[in-house]
C-alpha cells in the first residue's frame, strides 16, 4: 500500500516536473507580440502549455463600475499571425474602474485571468490567473479593489 502510494506520488511529481504549469495565460505590453498591428492594444497575451494554440477558444470581457453602475463590455480578441498570441483593444469607457476577464479553453483544459486596468494601462502585479474561469465573486472582489484604488 505504501509502495503504491509512493509510486503514485512519484508519478505525479514527475508529471508536474515535465509539465510544470497547466494551460494558462501570460500578459504583456503590445511590443511583446512583435506585431505592429497591436501597437495600440490595451495589452497582449499568449497561451501557455496549450498543445494546439491555434485551436484554443479565447474570449474576453471588460467588467467595470462607472459612477456606481456595473457595466460589462464584450471584447474582440484579435489573433496575431503567430499562433497563441492575442490582443484586446480598449473599447470600454475611460471613466470608472475596469478589469478585463480572459477565458480560454484548450482541449480539456480551461484557464481564466483577471487583468485590472489602471490609468496607465494594465496592472501586471495585481493580475490574477486561474486554471478555470474566474468566478463572479473573484471578479467583484477585483473590481471593488480597483474602485477603491482609483478613489
Amino acid at each position: 500500500m505504501f509502495k503504491l502510494g509512493f509510486a503514485v506520488l512519484s508519478f505525479a511529481a514527475l508529471a508536474a516536473w515535465a509539465h510544470p504549469v497547466g494551460f494558462t495565460f501570460t500578459i504583456g505590453n503590445p511590443v511583446a507580440s512583435q506585431d505592429f498591428h497591436f501597437k495600440t492594444a490595451a495589452f497582449v497575451f499568449r497561451t501557455e502549455s496549450c498543445a494546439d494554440p491555434a485551436k484554443a477558444q479565447i474570449s474576453a470581457t471588460a467588467e467595470g463600475i462607472v459612477k456606481g453602475t456595473r457595466q460589462s463590455v464584450p471584447l474582440r480578441v484579435m489573433a496575431a499571425s503567430k499562433p497563441g498570441i492575442f490582443a484586446v483593444n480598449q473599447s470600454w469607457s475611460p471613466e470608472g474602474a475596469w478589469v478585463v476577464i480572459l477565458h480560454g479553453i484548450c482541449g480539456n483544459e480551461s484557464a481564466g485571468a483577471i487583468v485590472p486596468m489602471g490609468p496607465q494601462g494594465f496592472l501586471r502585479e495585481s493580475s490574477k490567473f486561474y486554471p478555470r474561469p474566474a468566478t463572479d465573486a473573484e471578479i467583484d472582489a477585483s473590481l471593488k479593489a480597483m474602485a477603491r484604488d482609483i478613489k
Binding site: T26, I27, G28, N29, V31, A32, Q34, R46
Partner: peptide, 8 residues
C-alpha cells in the same frame, strides 16, 4: 529578448 519582452 523576445521572451524578456513579455515582462517589459
Amino acid at each position: 529578448k523576445d521572451e524578456l519582452a513579455w515582462k517589459w
